[in-house]
């Protein structure tokens, strides 16, 4: 049994069976990659894990508890953080404020009325935010308006916002999409470092095979809503079914 257990999960959109009987188990402190052609259902699967979608069938257990029927903020409080396929940050806020919000969420839970305390008197939280920002190389941008940053920076900020919560499970949906080569390599290095330094489990969706093979301990290949194979990166590389799924996509 892993930290995350997905059993027989199915999800249908009208006539489209986006997910059919997905079984997946992610072991604690590993990096599990989910790959597959466009429209395979990878993002849909992720949405079922974080409460954005409720699967029609099956169960999702995290850390021994079911996540089904819980709202996204409750699932996050259980220890799951998520990076989106298109960066979701607080565009109207400064980079530092973007970092403070997850820290307050972690300290105070889903709601606490701090109407009189000053944000910037929170030295301890601020220090944590600064440390995280310097880890992703954005410390000098802390006063910038988040919406005015480049796409790559927004992604890094979003990742930092998730990491600063010290989640047990980090879900990444194509974290390097739209990034330049150098930024992609930085992201790989960052994630490797995070994996070494902390007790964290990572589930990553990625099209870039370089990223997948640099990080993943195990890989699941998803095609048309069902897992084709699950194996180690070495075995996946030459697997005929995988070649087929990817060739099928390009035709």
């Amino acid at each position: 049994m892993g930290i995350l257990d997905v059993k027989d999960v199915g999800k249908r959109f009208g006539g489209l069976q986006a997910l059919g009987d997905v079984n997946l188990s992610v072991k604690e402190n590993t990096c599990h990659a989910i790959i597959g052609p466009n429209g395979a259902g990878k993002s849909t699967l992720l949405n079922c894990l974080v409460g954005k979608l409720i699967p029609d069938t099956g169960s999702v257990m995290f850390d021994g508890q079911s996540v089904l029927g819980r709202s996204p903020h409750e699932i996050n409080q259980m220890g799951i953080s998520r990076v989106f396929q298109t960066p979701e940050i607080f565009g109207d806020l400064s980079v530092m404020e973007n970092m403070m919000i997850p820290l307050f969420a972690k300290r105070d839970g889903a709601f606490r009325l701090h109407a009189i305390e000053s944000v910037f008197n929170e030295r301890a939280l601020r220090a944590e935010a600064e440390e995280m920002l310097s880890e992703v190389g954005m410390l000098e941008k802390q006063d910038m308006h988040a919406a005015s940053m480049s796409r790559g920076d927004k992604r890094r900020l979003e990742m930092a916002m998730c990491l600063v919560q010290n989640p047990k499970l980090l879900l990444l949906d194509e974290p390097t999409a739209g990034m330049a080569r150098a930024d992609t390599n930085n992201t790989i290095d960052l994630l490797k470092e995070i994996k070494e330094k902390r007790d964290i489990t990572i589930a990553i969706i990625e099209h870039d095979m370089h990223v997948v093979f640099s990080l993943a301990d195990r890989i699941t290949v998803l095609a048309q809503g069902t897992p084709l194979v699950e194996d180690t990166p070495e075995n996946i590389k030459g697997h005929p079914k995988v070649q087929e799924a990817y060739l099928g996509e390009s035709v």
Partner: peptide, 24 residues
Amino acid sequence: RSPFGMMLRAIKSNQQRLNYTGLN
């Protein structure tokens, strides 16, 4: 200037992110 005020601005900016950051 309080955390509460910051949360309110975050609601205006991106409710989705707020949800997935563990806040209601």
